[in-house]
Amino acid sequence: MSSHTITQTTYQQQLADGKLMASHCPACNASYLPPRPMCPQCFGAQMEWREMPTHGKLAAFTVVHIAPTAMIEAGYGRDNPYCSGIVELENGLKISAQITGVDVSQPELIQIGSAVQAEFLQREAGAFLAFEVIE
């Protein structure tokens, strides 16, 4: 029976504390990001929290001009586009995040493979994971 220790709510609180946490299965020695309450390989439920590296590289991206309501409320949209992407962490796990430190007016210059570093954005709606391009 799951005791519901690995949840999105807790993950979100950890983001607010400036930590990127995954769940780890001791039996498989595998980590999962986003964190899962059950290991999808061995179906084990003895999952533990494990802190993730904050550095990685950009694996894919887009610059969004037609934004969803939540991002419009955060000040983005047609006149203020933003970059979203998928980051591969140093340990190989991948995660979706907003990408900062890029010139969204020149998306053709944004490089897949660029080194990125986690940052934790605080907005009215809560804490959001982002990665800043640092090279």
Partner: peptide
């Protein structure tokens, strides 16, 4: 995934666009 993809700002065109950049 509303919990783990949408907070990143992804839209549906955005997902395919990301596959496009890859």
């Amino acid at each position: 995934d509303m919990l783990y993809e949408i907070p990143a700002g992804f839209t549906f065109p955005g997902f395919y666009a990301a596959m496009g950049t890859a």
